[in-house]
Design a protein around this nucleic acid. Sequence first.
RNA 1: GCGACUAUAGUUCAGCGGUUAGAACAUCGGUUUGUGGUACCGAGGAUCUGGGUUCGAUUCCCAGUAGUCGCCCCA
Length: 458
Amino acid sequence: MASSKSAKQKKSVATKKSATSARAEEPLAMQTLRGMRDVLPGDQPYWQQARKVLERSAVEYGFSRVDMPVVELASLFERSLGRDSEIVQKQLYTLTTKGNERAVLRPELTSSVARAYIQHGMAILPQPVKLFAMGPVYRYDNPQEGRYREFYQAEYNIFGEQDPVLDAQVVQLAHRVLKNLGVRNIQFSVNSIGTAETRKEYVKLLKAYFRSKKTKLPAQQRDMIDKDPLRIFDAKDDKCMQVCAGAPQLIDHLDKDSRDHFRRFLEYLDELNVPYMIDSQLVRGLEYYTRTVFEISASDTPESMRRALGGGGRFDGLVESYGGTPTPAIGFAFGIDRVIGEMRRVKAKRYHVPQPRVFLAQLGELAKKKSLPLFAEIEQSGILVAESFGRGALKTQLRHASKLGVDLTLIIGQQEALDETVIVKNMLTGTQETVAQKRIVSFIKKNLKESSKLVKTK
RNA sequence: GCGACUAUAGUUCAGCGGUUAGAACAUCGGUUUGUGGUACCGAGGAUCUGGGUUCGAUUCCCAGUAGUCGCCCCA
């Protein structure tokens, strides 16, 4: 007992020492930062599938891919999302660079895409310009189910066209992506929040209304009356909802153009066969939205309805607010993590990771040397081949091979290395034959074809 | 920012105020020479961190941290 204890003490001393010598006093925990996580090999089938479909749909709908830096100027988002918005106020990962730039990890993609559109003069391209972007975004929020501090968005944005047919096309695209991913039972919530000017008018009306009902509102919402009365609609408690039910509806106070835009949007939507409902209280938190806004959620359980899989809308004023020429735009973003969560929930089809069907085993130093180029030759011919070069015992390698479920195992030992042959063992039947190394690729191809026929006829 | 619950091998879980903290799966090795799947044998590997109560804490209490889940917000 005494010896084991002292061994433990030694161990802890050793780790402490190495940690301090490596860096400061901070403990080195083998752990991700809060709200961050690793996407492990076992998770990849869903991620691959999601990425594949998202990218393919982008191509099918005529979007070109853009990738922007993860780090941007803080002012980029302060301008677009609004200085008072929750994201800017509380959730930004901020950093000051050595060059004294005020930088942030991007909390969303749209602002970056708009920046790129202006910076690279895309206004001279034939309009509309359709851009697809996908990557990580960062928000310092409290993690919980379906909410992480680093999460992935995939965005489809269309610049330079104000026709509501595009609003509908974007909805169609979102619907199509989810359908292709095996996520059925989707529900769209749509609304129009008019232009910045009409909203201003409406907000006045709304403030007046909420002030008249002030006593019926909880303190938290009361504070929001003057700051951001639209957000009171998000409140979930009964009192608020009662008050909200009687509030003037933005939809009734839209300017004529916005109303017209919304009407036509809905008409197009009706042609599409996508399930939608008008949610006149849908207000999205990002300041840049104008007119059309919508969210997508799974519709089969109340929980899944609450957590949107994606959302978007028009941002006709954004490019101009950045100093670009006035450019209407529409777009939407998927939360990839949530889409994958939904795929898991409904047990959607996932990407089939290619499995090797051939294993290369070697015995002895000479064979090991020869097996290296042999591996390369087979792999270059397009055959996935597994190996276990680090191990010596043939038994172990065969065990590994059968665990991998390969059809054929190639065995090369001292004798075969000298003869320039390979033993090919059929793992199903156990039979084996010796093949010249020169012929090995064609031999494997022929045999794999036959064994997949066997599998099919089974 | 607020609240609830949880924390034991890589994973899923046992367990007890007091000898050596168990199991399953996983990993690695072995059951004679250059032949896998099954079986048998074996090995390594854990009480989140810091305080407190106690003769003694992995167990009880407090704090921190992290995870999970709500609220808020959003994707």
